[in-house]
């Protein structure tokens, strides 16, 4: 497990990626993947550029990680279970499901998703079970700057949406929010949430 200095270092890079996304008119979420103390893959949201609503930062980073494995000749099935993923915003249900399928063990994220299906997910959490391994979460690393970028983005308008509507400040997740912090265990069926803990950076609420 990475120490706090490490965690902040990688989250700092993820924030830089989120800023780069914002500069390109993308939802400002950045993601870094770390293998044996080395950042080997990164990405930011590219939904507008690709016109594919599933190209979230995590998906881009996973794609890079797989490329990297190929390039350096490592077996992805050996790498994935020991990488850590740093992302500025809590993974959506799709990404949480994906990370679960990949057996990524640790997700460190900045701000929580605002709005979404938290309550419903919690109710059905133990009903959900699929392949892969549950992941642990560390939440709230640089939560404020991570959230501030999203607020800035959603305060503007999504240039690709038809008939863009004025969005209320602070309402996030135009392309699908949804709390997924429970999905680590949700997808594994361990389901008791005990594997989750906040890191004491001022954000402790799940």
């Amino acid at each position: 497990m990475a120490d706090q200095g490490e965690i902040e270092k990688y989250m700092y890079s993820a924030l830089d990626l989120a800023r780069a996304a914002l500069a390109k008119g993308e939802v400002p979420v950045g993601c870094v993947m770390v293998y044996q103390g080395q950042a080997v893959a990164q990405g930011h949201n590219r939904v507008n550029e690709s016109k594919n609503a599933t190209v979230h930062a995590e998906m881009v980073a996973v794609g890079q990680l797989l490329e990297w494995c190929m390039k350096v000749g490592l077996d992805k099935n050996e790498v994935l279970p020991i990488v850590q993923l740093y992302v500025t915003c809590e993974p959506c249900i799709m990404c949480a499901g994906a990370l679960r399928l990949l057996s990524i063990p640790l997700i460190v994220f900045g701000c929580p998703h605002m709005g979404g299906v938290a309550a419903a997910q919690e109710i059905h959490v133990e009903r959900f079970n699929s392949k892969g391994q549950p992941f642990k979460c560390i939440a709230g690393i640089f939560a404020e700057p991570c959230a501030a970028l999203l607020k800035q983005f959603y305060g503007q308008q999504n240039p690709n949406a038809p008939n863009p509507k004025k969005k209320a400040e602070g309402r996030s997740t135009g392309l699908g929010g949804n709390l997924a912090s429970n999905f680590g265990s949700a997808f594994g069926g361990s389901g008791d949430g005990s594997e989750y803990y906040a890191a004491g950076y001022g954000y402790t609420e799940f």
Binding site: K51, N52, A53, T54, C92, I93, M94, C95, G97, A98, L101, F128, S130, P159, N160, A161, P162, N163, P164, L175, G176, N178, F183, F187
Partner: peptide, 28 residues
Amino acid sequence: NDGPYLCTGYDLYVTREPCIMCAMALVH
């Protein structure tokens, strides 16, 4: 902005029930 937007208005046919990742991808 008046062109097609993602899969708005489209139908999906898939031979097997989607997993949670795919189901949420379809929401997105």
